[in-house]
Amino acid sequence: MKLRATARLRALIPALALAGCTGWQSAIDVHGASAISLKHLIVVIMATCSVVWALVIATLIVALWRRREARESAIALDPRRQRRMTLAVGGAVAATVIVISAFTVSSFFTTRQLTAAGADDLTIKVRGLQWWWGVEYFGSKPELRFETANEIHIPVGRNVRVQLEGLDVIHSFWVPSLAGKQDLIPGRPNEITIRAERAGVYRGQCAEFCGLQHAHMAFFVVAEEQRAFEAWTALQRDNAVASSDAEVIAGQRVFLSRPCAACHAIRGTAANGKIGPDLTHVGGRKYIAAGLLETTRGSLAAWIADPQTLKPGNNMPMVPLAAEELRSVSAYLASLK
């Protein structure tokens, strides 16, 4: 009985390890053109390297186990053995050159897809900051542009051109299920193409160590059908919703009269700070603080009350608020759908 339990436990370990390869952030569980070809590249390189490794180990074992003849003379004195040795070494060198060249050429063609989208495709700008992502959407007219943060919506089945800009240190934009990595380097505009073949939510993560909270610099790509995407963009373009709820109105007052408005913008109000994330529709985003907490009124209140405990070192200060103020300001932010 005990033995069977141990065996079951042992079978669970590889299953658990493999389970880590699926889900909303995985270079193996792919749903975008670029990520699919990158996965092919991973498979081809892994398979080839496994065969090469097996051949090398087999050769090594044979060489170690083979019985040597005691009276073997120097190779140079035996033309037949010399020719055989030259062929073996030459063959191994040629195979190495062919394999490496094939890898180089195929990875060159695969990485070309990283920037497949052109000027005609949907273009968005993503800015990397310590430790969150600013997202800007453009339109055919200037009044159609809007800003959001840490959440990118894209239409399914279309190439999206993501222009990347680092504003403080080097970050890296990585949505493993949709595309490869691309760095955001201060002073050097970069871009990457993302494309989702299937609707869903894909997690992205900063992939270049950028300081204390690098691990908490996540974002989400929401791929949705064209109509849902258009509805989302129309909503995001709008100013913040006005409410008649007394607590929400009190919360807005707190937001505007306390230091919040110095750094954050809420379109439609006097708050137009440009330093922190745009909060016009913060209540409608899935997560706050770059993927740290799910958006709820409670998590908003916890974050405002003590940001340095939840995400030490981030640039949001602890603003002293009375309990009633905290309650109303969190109601206000949660209402901003």
Partner: peptide
């Protein structure tokens, strides 16, 4: 001016 902010509202250091 509304309620006066009191720092101790924010609790002790965890």
């Amino acid at each position: 001016e509304g309620p006066t902010p009191v720092h101790t509202d924010q609790g002790p250091t965890p």
